[in-house]
Design a protein around this nucleic acid. Structure first.
Lengths: 339, 339
DNA sequence: TTAAGTTACGTTAGCGCTAACGTTGGCGAT
DNA sequence: ATCGCCAACGTTAGCGCTAACGTAACTTAA
């Protein structure tokens, strides 16, 4: 009860007539204390309002119960869902979550990784696989599990759970080619901002190139992905001179904005123009005219990643790489969209 | 360079020919080292790849650079935006974010508060003001700033930034009464799940009671708020026997689902029935037929909260309570909605 | 019976840092 | 000259916990 007014392990030890070490063992559920003593210690600890000082514990044990997670942004429901999906297993395992939003900036992520190393986390989770060799090295040599999430890694640093964005794009592209589209346009954010989006774009493009049909137009919004960005981008493409028969947008947020732009411009979807997104956000559940999109297992990805991390922390030594399936969600093609 | 292979402060001290304390002072920008020595120390630290061990530092200083934030969920864009808004000032101040999602469960929040006390955070941020007196006491006596966010507190624990949900509801209710609506219905989640939503509901109800027009129907979805929940809830109300002339839904997510339900049921909005939400999500920017809703300054709230926290940590002793304005966003009333 | 475990503890020695309190030397004021 | 003061350091003593290593009592096997 010295500095902070909080009882310390020594206070509990004295009250229970045992050593601090026994209290430590009892509180952490380690063996080496009899059931009888353990119960007595725990009840006394509760009575005193004792909570182990995690900082001291982490220093002594040279590890913490912190999981450090970096995502580009929480504003995008995709990452919010991934993080949300991780919470439950992490909570069960008594792990706390530290979060970073890098705003798609590799240098911010890099600085954060360095900072996190100073916190001896129990594990670190980063988004995607595209980062400098220097950071990869730091993570490879880290004394804790590392998860690369959301994208599929060719050579993972350690654990990897994600979807193959190129393949998802390619599969969607093939589907669109089969439907007869030949003049695709692309609407996304500035190249380099979102490596996963670029991979999907490349997949779609490659699929269209099998029928010699490259993008006839391409708009890059210099802004965060949003309904508005999709609206503006799609509008630019629609009112442009290339008259595409299809717009592939970075994700469903943009795609929904794109549908609205079509409505505004008097274009029927998909009669006049096709609109395709990515992720399958919940919005499709309530639209009479659903988007064509790709369903990504976000929550499942978070859940699996968290479980893997927990099992690793508990001692499992398996190297895992999980590529999760992306389901193609075909939009309705019989009625028209009017928001 | 002992345990973890990471250089320690002592390694830097020896390399620079000074004491560990001087390195500590130099790294933290404290006075007591000459500019010359400071630069030399910092350059050597960089050369060695030294990063201060935050855990050891936090233990010695009995405080950390951690900000602990609890929100009900990140899946709701509102909280994602609040957290996102806090990131920038926190980052600038060198503070790390620990996050908890309580899923609207007070007992989870309570347990988390106890856990966080063991981490000596620099500040703690909780959502809303409705919590047990026991938790309020713990937070009041905490040796760091506490922020209650998103709701306006009558008697704040410490800092408070939020909107007055009752007033927002009341203002919206008055607006709706003026528009001539007299048979309102409510669609929300189970009572007790979301105290802020209940306050808004009460505000709307009180406004309607000024013209003796209570809710004619009320549906409580036993599920997370989503497009789908709004769709289902609104559909239940529409197909019910009370024929409301207006549906007030918990938030914009539900309200958008509600609009879709109206379309599905062949009801014109607002000709046949009014649909009202809360928050003003970005979706309105792309809808020809916009929702009637209340605009909440989420990002601004996060930003202000973070700034306040930072200034407090830096020594300011001001007690602050900020009630932010909620703007009423009137929906278009001239054309009909068809998704 | 006795050596060799086993259980249930206690003791020791830090983990890497920082608050608080020295100490030293240089400098201006008297 | 010598006092006091200040800047620029160094020293000491932990912060509260846990890994690693004792140790005593008790059990088991041959």
């Amino acid at each position: 009860m010295k500095l902070t007014g909080q009882p310390r392990i020594e206070d509990v030890a004295q009250a229970a007539g045992v050593s601090a070490m026994s209290v430590s063992r009892a509180m952490r559920g380690l063996e080496g204390v009899s059931d009888e003593t353990r119960e007595r210690i725990i009840s006394i600890a509760r009575k005193l309002g004792y909570a182990p000082n995690r900082i001291a514990g982490s220093l002594a044990a040279a590890t913490s119960n912190l999981i450090a997670i970096s995502v580009p942004t929480l504003f995008d429901a995709v990452f919010a869902e991934i993080v949300d999906g991780m919470r439950e297993p992490l909570m069960r395992a008594g792990l706390e979550t530290m979060i970073e939003t890098s705003d798609y900036d590799p240098s911010r992520e890099e600085a954060w990784v360095e900072r996190m190393l100073a916190w001896s986390p129990a594990a670190i989770v980063v988004t995607g696989v595209d980062r400098s060799e220097a950071v990869r090295d730091r993570l490879r040599n880290a004394p804790f599990p590392v998860v690369e999430l959301w994208d599929a890694a060719e050579s993972p640093i350690d654990l990897n759970i994600g979807v193959d964005h190129y393949q998802a794009g390619y599969a969607m592209g093939r589907h669109l080619v089969r439907l007869g589209y030949r003049r695709p346009a692309y609407v996304g954010v500035l190249a380099g901002r979102d490596p996963r989006a670029e991979k999907r774009r490349k997949g779609v493009l490659d699929a269209f190139m099998t029928v010699d049909a490259p993008f006839v137009d391409e708009v890059r919004i210099n802004d965060a992905p949003s309904f508005k960005a999709g609206f503006d981008g799609a509008m630019a493409v629609i009112t442009g001179s290339q008259s595409p028969d299809l717009i592939y947008l970075l994700n469903d947020h943009l795609a929904f904005g794109g549908m609205a732009a079509c409505a505004e411009a008097g274009k029927l979807v998909p009669d006049d123009i096709g609109i395709v997104g990515f992720n399958d956000l919940g919005i499709n559940a309530v639209l009479a005219r659903t988007l064509t999109t790709s369903r990504t297992p976000r929550a499942q990805m978070g859940l699996s990643a968290a479980r893997l991390v927990v099992s690793r922390i508990r001692g499992a030594r398996n190297l895992e790489r999980v590529v999760m399936p992306v389901d193609l969600v075909a939009g309705q093609t019989t009625r028209s969209f009017k928001p």
